[in-house]
Amino acid sequence: MNIYALGEGSFSVDSTKKFVPFNPLTDSPTDRKGSIFIHVQPFLLKTEHDLILMDAGLGFKNPNGELMLHDNIRNAGFEPEDVTLILMSHLHYDHTGGLVVERNGRMEPSFPDAEHIIQRGEWEFAFSGKSSSYRQPIFEVLQQSVNVTLVEGSGNFRNGITYELTGGHCPFHQVFKIESAGEIYFFGGDVLPEPEQLIRKFAAKYDFDGKKSMELRERFGKQAAEENWICCFYHAKNLAIGKVTDNNGFSVKTLDS
């Protein structure tokens, strides 16, 4: 398989927007009242031309002080230095924390040689200071140290990679479709974050435009079923990679089912 889910773990988030590790086997949700619970799954895709990282997680470290994201990439059979392209759906902290790593009290880019693909409006909004969902120091490190390519609107990037400005979850959210080795991979970021949101129709209150996100999920679900996409669900609890079927209602199955 050429697609890998790099599960970082489960977390609770309260009104302070601080992410606290949560173990469903030992921790009780009732002890964290007022919190929502999310799962974080960046993805790694090997194509004929690139090793692609799709969003970057929170940037938690393992007990040895190493970035979990780097460890997960090695567990998939690659080195962090092998990553050539990073596709960012948007720049909220739970998607960007792993783009930098703290070493000896200094923040450094986690993938200094990779090209980072970001929607221009999202990049500019991240620097505006208008939302606590963004961590500006991350973007300052990137601005100074890595190759950031700012795209606008929707279009073709290269080598079978297309991007679409969707809005919905945040004003400048984008999704990606990658064609490689006869397969179509779809990364919907937080517009299509988990299978359950595709299966159940609802407008999420945490979205910038919940109604639009709901409509986008419907559209992408139908396309995924018709065109046999491999879908990557960033906030999936269990089924992070799957294919969609539409038989008077959506369902998602593993690739080998």
Rank of each mutant, 00 (worst) to 15 (best):
T96Q: 01
L192P: 02
N23L: 03
A181Q: 11
F157M: 13
K253V: 09
E79R: 12
N75A: 14
F233Y: 14
R120N: 11
G9E: 03
V13Y: 10
K18A: 13
T30V: 12
R158T: 14
S213M: 03
S213C: 12
S133H: 11
G153W: 15
L44D: 04
T245H: 11
F37E: 01
F172S: 13
V100M: 03
E179F: 11
E183M: 11
D82Q: 02
P42D: 06
E66A: 08
F19Y: 15
L44N: 03
E48K: 11
I178P: 01
E79S: 15
T26E: 15
G129Q: 05
C231N: 14
I118K: 00
Q119V: 05
G105T: 05
K18H: 12
S89C: 09
S251W: 06
N23T: 08
I3A: 15
E196Y: 06
R106H: 10
Y134H: 13
T149M: 10
A181W: 07
L198C: 03
F176L: 04
A240L: 02
Q136Y: 09
I199Y: 01
D50G: 01
Y163L: 12
K212V: 03
S154F: 11
S131V: 04
V191G: 06
V13E: 14
V244G: 04
L216C: 09
G97D: 03
D14Q: 13
S213L: 04
H235T: 12
D246E: 14
D209A: 07
M88Y: 01
W123I: 05
I86T: 02
Q136V: 15
E115R: 14
P193W: 05
N248A: 14
N75E: 14
K18F: 10
G105K: 06
M107K: 09
R219G: 07
T162A: 11
